[in-house]
Design a protein around this nucleic acid. Sequence first.
RNA 1: CCCGGGGUGGAGCAGUGGUAGCUCGCCAGGCUCAUAACCUGGAGGUCGCAGGUUCAAAUCCUGCCCCCGGAACCA
Length: 548
Amino acid sequence: MPTDRPKFFLTTAIDYPNSRPHIGTAFEKIGADVQARYRRMQGYDVFFLMGNDENTVKVAKKAAELGQDTQAYCDDMARQFREVWDALDISYDIFIQTSSPRHHECCRKFIQKVYDNGYIRKDKYEGWYCVGCEAFKTEQEIKEAGGVCPNHKTSPIRRSEECYFFEQTKFRERLLKLYKERPELIQPESRRNEIISLVKEGLYDLNITRTGEEWGIRVPWDPKFTIYVWFDALLTYITGIGYGDDEAEFRKWWPCDIHFIGKDITRFHCATWPAMLLAAGVEPPKQVFGHGFVYIKNEETGAAEKISKSLGNVVEPMEIISKFSGEAFRYYFMRECPFPGDGEFSWQRFADVYNSELANNLGNLYSRVVTLISKNFGGTLPGGRKIDPDAILPYYQADLEGNRASPDGSEALALIHPGSTANVIANLKSLVEQCRYNQALQTIWANFLTPANRFAEVTEPWKLVKTNKGNAAEVLKYMLVPLRTVSILLKPFVPRAAETIYRSFNFTKPWEHVQYEDAAAYETQGDDLRILAQLEGGKVKPLFPRIG
RNA sequence: CCCGGGGUGGAGCAGUGGUAGCUCGCCAGGCUCAUAACCUGGAGGUCGCAGGUUCAAAUCCUGCCCCCGGAACCA
């Protein structure tokens, strides 16, 4: 289907399926998903790619340990990963398994191209080899284990063997030029600085093959070698959109708009990956975003620990989802952990944030507004009056200046001036586009939800219905404004709750077509404002039930 | 040793030259429409340390201290 909408192609890192996904992996997927959902809302034609990285020796070993066929093991793990992503409403368009025949084939075409272009040479790799493991060990591994193999506790031997090298050093100057010409390529900026100094000093050719492995992709011109897992893993980003077998589709999506990755693998994505692409005559991606890590707060010591199996602190995403919800999970990590930087998880903090921000603030505002309208007006507010989305902000400002409004509804309404909501939304768009999600959410709460509750406190519609029903109806319509605004702005973050709020009323624009700009452009509605939500005894089901 | 990030009231953070702010927690009061929710007020910080620039520094410069990461199958 042809389209003239701007395209937006984004990817997450692909994961090793040698263990189930943890909350750190989920953090990345959610951050990418917020971006994908935001772009779709804003009219982009979006393609969101994720996947599992299966061509590694570790996966084959793990399958063997379990007595399973490697492929069957990979398929089952892929199912388990997708189960978690689905529970978190990750809206990926394609999920690649690198063990798939199509990936293998496209991969071979790519590496052949790089070989033909003269950027792969045969040479010798020398390093510390453990006979027990039948594998090379890094200096680091040996050093950390005290001079022996960490698995076998035996001394490694010096060994050299033939292999193929990718000559990425040949791209040193071109990479540096690229970083200079396109400062937005590596984000956030701290990562960029890191990579520039790395490429200036530390770039070296990469051994991209292994021998003696059954599981993996064969090197096309020399099939006794398999392709080193990193080289094939990165290729997922292009094989997934048709590189090597669907030229039109590939040209439609490439170059990638954002690769979301963990900050630890920026060097691969910002140096090796663009070099690989250049070597094959393909354009580099537009942006690589290296997000921060989630640490687990040790409830006893208070220290932030790296998520690791050996520390035994791994938290299963499903555990959080079943205790709270997928929406709460998304909110917590986007609100509490600055996406470009590091964040922390603790059950205590999770419960605090959930109760105070989702239940008490957002959820409760929704409940009180719905109940007030249904109990006092039978669920229908008479229409015909224009509602201005700036109703709340100026009140808030007036309040800050010390001009306390009187409890008379009409006087509170007199504080309204137009103009400011649009500014806040412009700022929010920029924050979301820069992936500064925690600041975006904080801005939404501070500018719409808190003022809405204050507005209610000053105008007291529950009293006003007894003395001046006309004014009470107006006040309630104004309270609906921030609720509507927030539902639109939260659509990328908590899609289900946002939809529930929006669809609880007969707002005119269809939910599927709502954009950020609509949050500031509340249309005049001749029709009555009605509650469409299902009620029981005049009340709605709590959006986020408090959890004790 | 080197490189990167960071040190702001009890916790987590924002704040790149002009009276130190947000969320949570804590204390007191108000309200009662609402999910024991909401609103107001309060306590609590010499913005890691020492110098320097400036009319003015959390913010710029210099030196020092401390914490966290850091090269490959780990997001």
